[in-house]
């Protein structure tokens, strides 16, 4: 069952995305169980190295979720996170790794349904990808 499911790591900022994930629970929504949330104070805390580490540790995909743009609890950490994620996606592509494995999202604390939807969509997308090439990613992370 789950063993064949893609493993998704979600770096969620404490203030909005993590709160949205909690709200999805509070609203008793349902989404695929293959996501593992790692909370960070701000999505701006997430560096490419950490995302690569997650892939190296066995994640098939990584989502970075911060506050809505213009709405960052720390003013603009989420904008820095987006820039880093975009840079990393270009790098992954050059390395022959599907850039869709890594994606940045913005959520408000009231967006429980959106969180559930994102996890479902991201999972669906990862299901459609071929088995991951670990070697290339490890080199990039090293």
């Amino acid at each position: 069952m789950t063993r064949s499911e893609p493993l998704l790591v979600a770096f969620c900022c404490y203030w909005c995305a993590y709160a949205a994930a909690d709200l999805a629970g509070g609203m008793r929504l349902s989404y695929p169980p293959n996501v593992r949330v790692v909370e960070v104070p701000c999505s701006g805390r997430v560096e490419p190295e950490l995302i690569l580490r997650a892939l190296n540790e066995g994640a098939d995909g990584v989502m970075v979720a911060g506050c809505l743009e213009g709405d960052c609890h720390y003013q603009r950490g989420n904008l820095r996170a987006r820039r880093r994620v975009e840079r990393l996606r270009r790098l992954l592509e050059e390395l022959g790794v599907e850039p869709e494995r890594v994606e940045m999202f913005n959520l408000s604390a009231a967006m429980g349904p959106r969180f559930a939807q994102i996890v479902a969509e991201m999972t669906e997308r990862l299901r459609g990808l071929p088995p991951r090439k670990f070697q290339a990613v490890e080199e990039a992370g090293a």
Partner: peptide, 13 residues
């Protein structure tokens, strides 16, 4: 909040 409440139909997972 991020597990039992959202995966109520999938106890094993």
């Amino acid at each position: 909040d991020q597990c039992s409440w959202v995966h109520r139909d999938e106890p094993e997972a």
